[in-house]
Simulated assay, not measured.
Amino acid sequence: MVWYGQCIPRHAFLLWLVLKNKLKTQDRLAVWEAGSETNLRLMCCPLCNYGRDSRDHLFFQCSFSAKVWNIVKKRTDLRYVSGYWSSIMGWIEQNTSSKALDHIVSKLVLAAATYFIWKERNNRLFSNIRSKEEMVAQYILDTVRLRIMGFKIGRDVNSRKLLEMWEIKEDDPG
């Protein structure tokens, strides 16, 4: 799922960490924290300021991530995948070895979404820089669109539909 020819390596690496639940989220760091109950209560999601900063909350369930996810998944085969980790994992397990163009693009979007949501989380925690959901979604869409532009794509109907969906013009043969 993570490592395939068309992946973006830094996105794939972060997605690999997400799948293994190895990101240094606040809930995992709390195990090492010998601090007080007050410190544990302060550890909330920096994106929505509500839920616990954990993998399951951070990726796609917090209100910020859910909005980003709902914007970007419209251009993929992930349209009908809910924002629950189990639903996302089910799609991953079904399509891990698929070489279909729409599945490759969906994998790119999933990896880019985790990458840019994690980046936004870190920007808010460590740099006090905040972006709106629409801006993060646009980073994801722009990155995936640029990656698709580097593909060698056939001229079949499904390929044309995908290019149209991503607003990519086919090269003129003449």
Rank of each mutant, 00 (worst) to 15 (best):
A34N: 13
E37H: 13
E37A: 14
T38P: 04
L40H: 10
R41F: 12
L42S: 11
L42P: 00
M43V: 02
M43C: 08
P46L: 08
P46S: 12
P46N: 11
L47Y: 03
C48L: 11
R52Y: 09
S54R: 05
S54A: 12
R55W: 13
R55N: 15
R55Y: 13
D56F: 10
H57A: 12
L58G: 08
L58C: 10
F59P: 03
S63T: 13
S63V: 09
S63I: 09
S63N: 08
S65Q: 00
S65L: 00
A66V: 05
A66T: 10
K67A: 03
K67N: 04
V68M: 01
N70P: 03
N70K: 03
I71D: 01
V72F: 02
K73S: 01
K74E: 06
K74R: 11
K74D: 02
R75Y: 11
D77K: 10
D77Y: 07
L78F: 06
R79L: 09
Y80T: 15
Y80R: 14
V81K: 01
V81G: 07
S82V: 13
G83S: 10
W85K: 01
S86G: 06
I88Y: 14
I88Q: 14
M89E: 15
M89L: 14
W91N: 09
W91M: 08
I92Q: 08
Q94R: 13
Q94F: 01
N95A: 02
T96E: 14
S97F: 12
S97H: 11
K99T: 08
L101S: 07
H103G: 02
V105S: 05
V105K: 05
K107V: 03
K107M: 10
L108C: 06
L108Q: 01
V109W: 06
A111N: 02
A111C: 08
A111K: 00
A111G: 11
A112W: 02
A113D: 02
A113C: 12
T114V: 14
Y115L: 12
I117Y: 07
E120S: 06
N122R: 10
N123D: 15
N123S: 14
L125P: 09
F126P: 11
F126Q: 09
E133P: 02
E134V: 02
M135C: 04
M135F: 12
V136Y: 02
V136H: 00
A137G: 04
Q138G: 00
Y139C: 07
Y139W: 14
I140S: 01
I140F: 06
T143F: 01
T143W: 00
V144C: 09
R145Y: 05
L146C: 12
R147W: 01
I148Y: 04
M149S: 15
M149H: 03
G150W: 05
G150S: 15
G150R: 09
F151E: 03
I153A: 05
D156M: 06
D156R: 06
K161H: 11
K161Y: 07
E164W: 10
E164A: 11
M165I: 13
W166L: 07
W166I: 08
W166T: 05
E167K: 14
E167C: 13
I168M: 10
K169A: 15
E170P: 05
